[in-house]
Amino acid sequence: MAILDVENLSIRFGGLVAVDQVSFQVMPDQIFTIIGPNGAGKTTIFNLISRLYEPTSGRIVFKGTDITRRPPHQIARLGMARTFQNIELFEHATVLDNVLLGRHVHARAGFLSQLCYLPSLRRDEKAFREVAEGVIGFMDLESYRRTPIHGLPYGIRKNVELARALALEPRLLLLDEPSSGLTPTEARALAYRLKAIRDRLGIAILMVEHNLRLVSDVSDHVLAVNQGRILTSGSSDAVQRHPDVVRAYIGE
């Protein structure tokens, strides 16, 4: 059973068809990568899945639930977390607070117990911090715990964003260009972490990525898109050798 099932998804901005009849399935134990040249509509597909954009037509099914018309905040509640191409962190909050926001969907305390900081909330908060610390350790962010985001270097911010998404304990992780702006060393660490997320944490990953070495390294399945349409899909090597893909990247 697929964890994410996208059927004939399309979106039109004015006269431009940015995503055209795209269908694919992500399995629960997969790292699924979407590649394609700039402007191919990769991020638009992401924004459609995380419900920031309204699709013109098509269906998105996540864990058996049709989420095509659900508001974006419910998507997280169902167990999907995402990162952003240009990093959307909470700039004036600390790393720990950013990661703790990942626990938001698990918060159960009512208004009164938050206003008075009752023992039930205290218990929750302790449990949240245990999860957050686990994620912070996994992402090697211990030394930045209490540092506000503004002023942190780019690579660290990328890690914080991934940590925040992991703290949600999602079933599916959407990563929009996780390696952009990283040094080669950081990119290798990322490859290791992505596999660990799949194998140790059992989280499926859907990502958009440009670094083809990283793509070959970690992907179980690759989907190539250009101008909003699917070119081909399959194993990483087969897709990268596909003549349409080569043409799309290099031009005629």
Partner: peptide, 20 residues
């Protein structure tokens, strides 16, 4: 959690939404 949600909205509405 309420306060963190407020701060999240202040700093990035889109990320806040996507985190639930």
């Amino acid at each position: 959690p309420i306060g963190r949600a407020f701060i999240a909205i202040r700093d990035s509405r889109i990320a806040a939404q996507s985190m639930g």
